[in-house]
């Protein structure tokens, strides 16, 4: 396999890991105003994310950094084309991050309400906009041979783009609700488990519509038709989604969450595989599309970065698993009483 193709899949893997981990943070943040009835509920919800959200978000930084390092031209054209959407995402992420830290620092209802709103915006915004952005990338972006984007923020808000946004939000809602089932007790747990069950059929319907719409809006299936064995990725993803329902019914929350993680990874890989070898296709002319082969770094940089990634990614996954394991189980009163708990 060529170096560029290996890098293409590392690139996809990093995005998938980002959505698989920070995805449930987004989901909890979107559910936050609806499931968090009391202040304690709300604190349980954000402290359920407390020890892990920051590390999760670094997968985004790494996905961005790796795009820059391995595919500089993609990094340049993608982020300048999606300028306004990306700025909105970044501001939303900033608000989310500080809200967790600031909310509990002043004991005043208005103060808390402000940061509560920011937590919701900071979670819903990125979840939805990432969905819109990726759906548009699947479809192709109107940029020319000089990397100049011919459109506005509203160009992205086409029906398929919006559908992508809704699909991502539902995916993360499911993922976040299941995380809450693992982490909460009492009334909050009851509401979270009821919600997890209610989201599932909606997610299923939207997922099916999205898979269908993809056939008409994008060329993603071309790769699958050329190599039918690849359909297994879609099958695994659908099986994982069915697994979510199965484990919800049994009340096996960790297994359900794990299936949901697999569904998220699968959904991202469904798109990535369909895109190959393009990372950023142009809808104006196929010749302008940026691919793993015409937009990559020099072989020396790709080799050095491959060594870095092979050395560090397993280590990172290792210590992140250690952290998740350290903080497994329900959020307790003792956790909330810590000096610096959120």
């Amino acid at each position: 396999m060529e170096l560029q193709s290996i890098w293409f899949f590392i690139w996809g893997l990093l995005w998938a890991l980002f959505f698989m981990t920070d995805g449930f943070d987004f989901g909890v943040g979107i559910l936050y105003p609806f499931l968090g009835k009391s202040d304690t509920d709300k604190r349980v919800m954000i402290n359920a994310l407390g020890p892990v959200w920051d590390g999760n978000e670094v997968w985004l930084i790494t996905a961005g950094g790796v795009t820059f390092a391995a595919f500089p031209l993609v990094y340049a054209v993608m982020f300048s084309s999606l300028y306004s959407a990306l700025m909105l995402i970044l501001f939303a992420l900033i608000l989310r991050g500080v809200s967790f830290e600031f909310r509990g620092k002043v004991n005043n209802p208005t103060w808390k309400k402000v940061w509560d709103t920011c937590i919701f915006i900071g979670s819903f915004g990125p979840a939805f906009l990432f969905g819109v952005a990726f759906a548009n990338i699947f479809k192709g972006i109107p940029f020319d041979g000089n990397g100049i984007y011919h459109g506005t923020l509203f160009t992205l808000l086409n029906p398929y783009g919006l559908l992508g946004g809704v699909f991502f939000v539902l995916l993360f809602l499911q993922h976040g609700a299941l995380w809450l089932c693992i982490k909460s007790e009492g009334d909050l747990y009851e509401r979270a488990s009821a919600t997890a069950g209610k989201i599932w059929p909606v997610l299923l319907v939207v997922a099916v519509i999205f898979l269908g719409a993809t056939k008409f809006a994008t060329p993603l299936y071309d790769n699958y038709i050329a190599h039918p064995a690849l359909f297994i990725v879609i099958l695994i993803t659908v099986a994982a989604l069915v697994g979510v329902k199965f484990f919800i019914a049994k009340g096996a929350w960790f297994s359900a969450w794990f299936s949901s993680a697999l569904t998220t990874m699968g959904a991202i890989f469904f798109g990535i595989i369909g895109l190959y070898p393009n990372l950023f296709p142009s809808s104006i002319d196929k010749a302008y599309s940026l691919s793993a082969f015409n937009a990559s770094s020099s072989p020396l940089t790709l080799k050095i970065m491959l060594v870095v990634v092979i050395l560090f990614i397993p280590v990172i996954i290792g210590y992140q698993i250690w952290t998740y394991n350290l903080f497994k189980g329900k959020v307790t009163k003792e956790d909330l009483d810590l000096d610096d708990a959120y």
């Binding site: 020890p51 590390g55 820059f68 970065m305 990634v309 350290l326």
Partner: peptide
């Protein structure tokens, strides 16, 4: 770009993951 990517993988990840352990651990 590669220097920024190395920063994220080799350093920033550790810092961001462990700060959670320090606060809640």
């Amino acid at each position: 770009g590669s220097l920024l990517a190395i920063e994220a993988t080799a350093a920033f990840f550790l810092e961001s993951t462990l700060i959670g352990v320090w606060i809640f651990g």
